[in-house]
Amino acid sequence: MSEANKQPSAEPMILMQGVHKWYGQFHVLKDINLSVQAGERIVLCGPSGSGKSTAIRCLNRLEEHQQGRIVVDGTELTQDLKHIEAVRREVGMVFQHFNLFPHLTVLQNCTLAPMWVRKMPKRQAEEIAMHFLERVRIPEQAGKYPGQLSGGQQQRVAIARALCMKPKIMLFDEPTSALDPEMVKEVLDTMVSLAEDGMTMLCVTHEMGFARTVANRVIFLDKGEIVEQADPDTFFTNPQNERTQLFLSQILH
């Protein structure tokens, strides 16, 4: 799809239409319909196995959907590798287990993709990397290896690494679930500041405090279906659905 026929204001950043996915015989995603505008901040929650991770992993085709359409930033995700790579260039992802490259320094982790994918000169890539490492407040760790950092620091590096590609959309797949409690805040703070800058974000998370303050919309998934979506105020104070209520009562004590 060419730049010319893109209409940034009218067309949603992300569009999922009737998306289905199966793992073998198991129906994980059932008729997912979702449209996300630029600058929106969406939180996906739901019990484990509800398909929320699978849903956002379909958005950069780490998982393949078998039915329906997914259009990201005007590019439809199909078998075509060119489209997939175009989408991945514009979509940053942060994983539960960081997935930093252990054989590269923090700085090299951040410059790898800009240099090899964006074909950026090394100096420029390093400047950008340092900019984002300052942004996540760990520029002093640039020369270290991931194994030398704490979990919270590693996750912040992972966020910086994704930001170095200057993505239009950021996906967070349970970014704080693998962290020790005292490290959750430093990562959430980074995400909040990112939201304040107007980044389009989709987060799978159980941090309901984060959802309340940052999200424009909270989506509740169960058994592969979107059961309820609402703005955080309505969602937390006045959930419409009994599944949602049950889930909230379990998670908010």
């Binding site: 994983f95 054989h103 994918v117």
Partner: peptide, 27 residues
Amino acid sequence: VSHGQTEAARSLGLRPGNTLRLVIIPQ
């Protein structure tokens, strides 16, 4: 080399060849 490494590299937009050469093989 954990599958997460491949996923991370691919989600950064690295092509399969570069993923293999820069991320998987060195490890």
